[in-house]
Design a binder for these strands. Structure first.
Lengths: 111, 111
DNA sequence: TTCTTTAATCGTATATTTGCGATATAAGAT
DNA sequence: ATCTTATATCGCAAATATACGATTAAAGAA
């Protein structure tokens, strides 16, 4: 592909895309669902639920954390994770700003 | 990676992930923004705005269309696109159902 | 100290995505 | 019929993502 052009887009566009990207895998959706239901979880509990190897789950958790969707803290030999609701709120807002606001003013018939 | 395991997740998880995936690139966010602002656009107008080749834009449009985020109809030699607001509403709902509802009941302190 | 438990990271194979030029297609204009 | 315009598709190269086993790291238990 030669060169990636992601940088040529606005920061907001990149941020929204990055958030969406973190959600763009069913395993990560499933992880978030578990965290939402239980408020917090250690990695092992998630490994027990998902049909994936420990290393794979750990990698997905890392991506979610890097993207800012979850928080994680070390607790002895284990790691505790929970959803970063503030991030969800922020992106929900950005998303609405970009689309829903515009939607109201021009949900006309189109092609 | 051997085998893809996406199939082992629930349909709703897969659907949400697929929607997010369509949003997971700044170029596609930018395209949606343009469509939201102008209600409808032909491919060439988008090509003029984005810093990408015509073939690349066409590919992104195809992905958005396949994922159901936009509608597209042939209009003589050109193609007209617009946002499929119904899809946005549907996924907004799914998303809220999965996360926001749970959020209200347990936005406790966590790790 | 050594053993066990828990999780992160490394290395690697494979699949998918991104991007572009070139080409094909389709319809209106000449 | 040929030319022009607008877009889709093909073929390819490079970058990323996905998945897992093996290894490492870190801390509590024996």
């Amino acid at each position: 592909m030669a060169i990636h052009k992601k940088e040529s887009f606005s920061q907001k566009e990149q941020d929204l895309a990055a958030f969406a990207k973190a959600l763009a895998h069913p395993a990560r959706i499933a992880i978030l669902k578990v965290l939402a239901q239980r408020n917090e979880c250690i990695c092992g509990q998630i490994v027990d639920i998902l049909p994936l190897a420990q290393s794979t789950v750990s990698q997905h958790l890392k991506e979610l954390k890097t993207a800012g969707l979850i928080n994680g803290t070390v607790d002895g030999p284990r790691s505790c994770y929970c959803i970063n609701w503030k991030a969800f709120d922020k992106f929900n807002e950005e998303f609405s700003f970009l689309f829903n606001k515009l939607k109201v003013q021009n949900e006309k018939a189109c092609c």
